[in-house]
Simulated scan of single mutants.
Amino acid sequence: MEILRLKELMSQKGMSREDLANKVGVSMTTISNINSEKNLPTIHLLLQIAEALDVDIREMFVPTKGNVVTQSEVDEAKDFIEKGLRILEGKK
């Protein structure tokens, strides 16, 4: 399961990797690595991306497979957010 819906949201907004990279001030490689989940964005970058896409940050995590969210999806999103917070706090 993808943790972030970045590709889907970019497609919905008609925004290319280059467009998004320019709007948030990062390289296209950074956006590609986030899309492929090679790298996880910082909370700060995630907020910038949500703003550039004109979506609520929660929309970055909401699955589109219907209205049902499984516990494992909730746990994965929680782990992702907690990891980001630990990195921000310098705890890794």
Rank of each mutant, 00 (worst) to 15 (best):
A77K: 03
S27T: 15
T30R: 10
A21R: 10
N67F: 10
K13V: 00
K38F: 05
R86V: 05
V62M: 13
E82G: 00
I87P: 00
E18Q: 13
S16A: 00
L85M: 15
L4R: 11
N35M: 06
L46C: 02
Q48S: 14
S32E: 13
S11N: 14
D54V: 01
P41M: 03
K7T: 02
L4I: 06
E73Y: 07
L46I: 02
D56F: 00
L4M: 11
D56T: 06
P63Y: 08
G66T: 11
E2I: 05
S27W: 02
T29A: 11
L4C: 04
M1D: 04
M60Y: 05
L85S: 01
P41F: 02
T64P: 06
E89H: 09
L47N: 12
N35F: 00
Q48W: 00
S32H: 15
V24F: 04
F61W: 07
D19E: 12
K78E: 15
N35I: 03
T70R: 13
V74Q: 06
N33F: 09
S36N: 14
R58G: 10
I57E: 09
T42I: 04
E37H: 07
I3D: 03
E73G: 05
G90P: 05
V68C: 04
E37Q: 14
N33R: 15
I34Q: 14
L6Y: 08
K78W: 10
D79T: 08
L4Y: 12
R17G: 15
K38P: 02
V68N: 01
E37K: 04
I49F: 03
E18S: 14
A52H: 11
L85R: 15
S72N: 12
R17Y: 03
K83A: 10
P41A: 06
S11G: 10
D75G: 01
A21G: 08
L9D: 07
I31C: 07
L53Y: 14
G14Q: 06
A52R: 10
K83E: 14
N22L: 12
Q71R: 14
V55N: 07
T30P: 00
S36I: 00
L20T: 04
F80E: 08
N33G: 02
S36L: 01
I3R: 10
E2L: 09
L9A: 05
D75E: 12
V69Y: 03
R58M: 07
S27F: 01
R17E: 14
L88P: 00
I57V: 15
E8K: 05
D79Y: 05
G66E: 09
V69D: 09
S36R: 06
L85C: 04
D79H: 08
I3F: 06
S27E: 11
Q48T: 03
M28S: 07
V55P: 08
V74S: 05
L40R: 15
V74N: 03
K7C: 01
K38N: 15
S72K: 13
